[in-house]
Design a protein around this nucleic acid. Structure first.
Lengths: 270, 270
DNA sequence: CAAATAGTGTCTCTAAGACAATATCAC
DNA sequence: GTGATATTGTCTTAGAGACACTATTTG
């Protein structure tokens, strides 16, 4: 009888055909935009990172950051590495979204993509400094159902506007999937990946844990509330929000100052 | 400038190293066991399908059904195909669990596994007939936290008992991950996959949709309740359960008969 | 009638949503 | 004082859990 050692020495993994494996990462950040009125707090925009492709296929289209899985790394490590290569930043949180493996999804051949969503703090991006000449840019995101039941995905950076249209296919086990009707100049099936990731993020942010990932160490409760409102694109009454998060935060003895209105106490995650 | 056609003709996908890609499937079924007392309803057991490995590595260990992704199929199709090869049955529902890609998880080499959970109805398995000589067997599942905080996974078929011990690692975005402390004679990292899948199933079954997947077309509300109770290993008060599912079912005008107690009305999914 | 399951009514407690009111700062 | 945000109190409503009770069958 053959021993395990003998078996493995005779085993040749090259005998089977293998796909290429990539990760594509939807990196989410909340950008705060100063307003013109000195009294008003800053506005928040949910944004994702896209990269302008310099080569075929989909040359000059915008695509998600991502790349091939390398020997010796996990898929999660690959996702983190790819984001690091584009932003010099380590994501705060990484969320699996789905695996996309439809034959023909990539014209280069048999390539399956493990999609991840990650959360990046605005502070860390500010520190590394945005390189405006780079092909990587943060796009503000809009994603809403329109009257005919389809979903519009709007991505906007400076004067570049991308507009994709998707049809909701199914919701099972808390995950919603989409089909592309119009890819809106996004590469590959990335419109679909973004829509799926965004839906997953909206689901995830209902748990308070995820909200903290978008915040600095100390924050005001209004800022915290705005994070949830920005992602869900829905306003919440302050009294109710505060009641909900009461047990997840501890107050510090610091306050904001200099805004044209009442200062707010700073809180910390409990 | 190079056209897309020129680019693709010069592109060689073989230039990159590639992993082998497999799916492993945790197939769940609820078995009803007749009791000795003519008055009592049947007992339910949650069970999963395991296969005794005939070759190295892990020869004679029990493993999840699964296999290599083939060109031209999606990962989901691969999972369904593998289950069909073992059971001749098409699963009712397929749920992605996680991707396992740790280097060294498979002694044969660089192999990443896409884990799925699927639900199989007892009726369909009965029809195809269980082949007792086969290496594929349904194991009853027990999975509970024990006093020191770890989790015990107990799998039982006839006189075969497998007992694995796992440590809970993290819960993020509704998914819980585990580390293996004792694999209990299960092949590869399959103890971990089973624990992760079971936790995901317990989360999923809190939505009523998933409960229907375990039921035949017509069912009693008690049977429906028992499905949820069996999976969650937790009893529910009938009044509360009925209130919760009221809007998801419609009654038929049929009744069960022949049990040693009051007949129950049969319902259908709405 | 006994034993078992089937099925209903209702009280309580908690969490979410809505609304109203007060507090405090920069200018 | 004005305009903005910060913060708190409380009414109402929806849902989950607990408990008590009634109904119907077979042997």
């Amino acid at each position: 009888m053959q021993s395990e050692k003998e078996f493995l020495s005779g085993y040749n993994i090259e005998d089977y055909e293998r796909p290429s494996v990539t990760t594509d990462v939807v990196a989410f950040m909340i950008r705060s935009e100063e307003s013109d009125n000195y009294k008003r707090n800053s506005e928040n925009k949910l944004s994702i990172l896209l990269i302008r492709r310099g080569q075929h296929p989909f040359r000059d289209c915008w695509a998600l950051p991502g790349g091939f899985l390398q020997p010796g790394e996990t898929i999660e490590a690959c996702a983190v590495r790819e984001i690091g290569e584009e932003t010099n930043v380590t994501p705060v949180a990484l969320m699996p979204v789905a695996v996309f493996s439809e034959p023909g999804r990539d014209p280069r051949g048999w390539i399956i993509s493990n999609a991840y969503a990650c959360i990046i703090s605005e502070d860390s991006v500010r520190q590394t400094g945005g390189d405006d000449a780079s092909d990587a840019q943060w796009f503000d995101v809009g994603f809403e159902r329109n009257k005919d039941g389809d979903f519009s995905l709007d991505l906007c950076y400076a004067h570049t506007h991308l507009h994709a249209i998707l049809t909701q296919e199914e919701t099972r086990f808390g995950k919603t999937s989409f089909a592309i009707r119009d890819s809106g100049n996004l590469a590959f099936d990335h419109a679909r990946i973004i829509a799926t990731a965004l839906t997953a993020l909206r689901e995830g942010v209902k748990s308070i844990e995820t909200v903290f990932d978008f915040l600095p160490e100390k924050f005001t409760l209004s800022a915290m509330q705005k994070v949830q409102e920005t992602i869900l694109n829905k306003s919440i009454l302050p009294a109710n929000f505060r009641r909900k998060i009461r047990d997840f935060v501890v107050e510090t003895d610091e306050y904001t100052q200099g805004a044209g209105h009442r200062p707010a106490k700073l809180y910390r995650r409990k």
